[in-house]
């Protein structure tokens, strides 16, 4: 047998590893489509774009599937208690990361691989992947702070707020949850149908 903390560490490594691959490839696709001549056009070559697109969707899907497992095992590792702002923010950043990654994966599946050929969609996907990896690394860095007292973010110029938490009243959270669910329903059922982008 092994402890919940060990299992959580393994799951978190899978999530972060696959998400790093996904975000690098997604940003590569975005940059390649916006600046086709960068790196002598090698980044935007059809073969490269296809490879990066497939790697990004595969990595993001794998990571997204493992986020709930990592979150639950982390919850067990913390004895299902949240007694400080760092731990609370870990949950919040995990939720944000899951939201960004879910949007990235769903968007890519709905719109197809040719979404990178549309400048505005390409920028949006690239920005989504950037935000997603930022939230993912924040959540995992908080884990490092909690366990080892240090994080790679200590030497980086970026450090999002984590020492203090904005704790929403559960009622407000439930209302936001309902708003989010309603918004998703509206997007999928009532809103404009996003079509898979085909070749011209």
């Amino acid at each position: 047998m092994f402890g919940a903390a060990t299992f959580h560490a393994a799951m978190a490594e899978i999530v972060v590893g696959s998400m790093v691959l996904a975000s690098l490839c997604a940003i590569g696709c975005s940059v390649g489509s916006i600046f086709p001549n960068i790196l002598g056009g090698r980044l935007s070559s059809e073969r490269m774009m296809l490879t990066m697109d497939k790697a990004s969707i595969a990595g993001a899907s794998l990571g997204l599937a493992f986020i709930p497992i990592a979150a639950l095992s982390g919850s067990f590792a913390a004895d299902n208690t949240v007694n400080n702002a760092l731990l609370y923010n870990k949950f919040v950043y995990t939720g944000l990361a899951a939201g960004f990654w879910a949007a990235f994966v769903i968007g890519r599946i709905r719109l197809g691989p040719r979404l990178w050929e549309h400048r505005s969609l390409s920028v949006l996907q690239g920005a989504t992947a950037t935000m997603a990896i930022l939230m993912t690394t924040m959540a995992s860095s908080i884990g490092g702070k909690l366990v080892r007292g240090e994080s790679l973010f200590d030497i980086m110029p970026i450090w999002l707020p984590s020492d203090s938490a904005t704790v929403l009243n559960p009622i407000v959270s439930i209302v936001l949850l309902l708003v989010g669910t309603g918004s998703l329903f509206a997007v999928f059922k009532l809103g404009p149908k996003a079509e898979r982008i085909e070749a011209d």
């Binding site: 979150a71 919850s75 913390a78 299902n80 208690t81 949240v82 731990l87 609370y88 949950f91 919040v92 995990t94 939720g95 944000l96 899951a98 939201g99 960004f100 879910a102 949007a103 990235f104 769903i106 968007g107 709905r110 719109l111 979404l115 549309h118 505005s120 969609l121 949006l124 989504t128 704790v167 929403l168 559960p170 959270s173 439930i174 936001l176 949850l177 708003v179 989010g180 669910t181 918004s183 998703l184 509206a186 997007v187 999928f188 809103g191 404009p192 149908k193 996003a194 079509e195 982008i197």
Partner: peptide, 27 residues
Amino acid sequence: IWDARLQGLALALLVTAFLLSLQARLS
């Protein structure tokens, strides 16, 4: 912990819904 779980899940749904609607608008 339930405050944290609810807040995390609510933010996840809101972010997803917002980005999906943006994708639909741009596509």
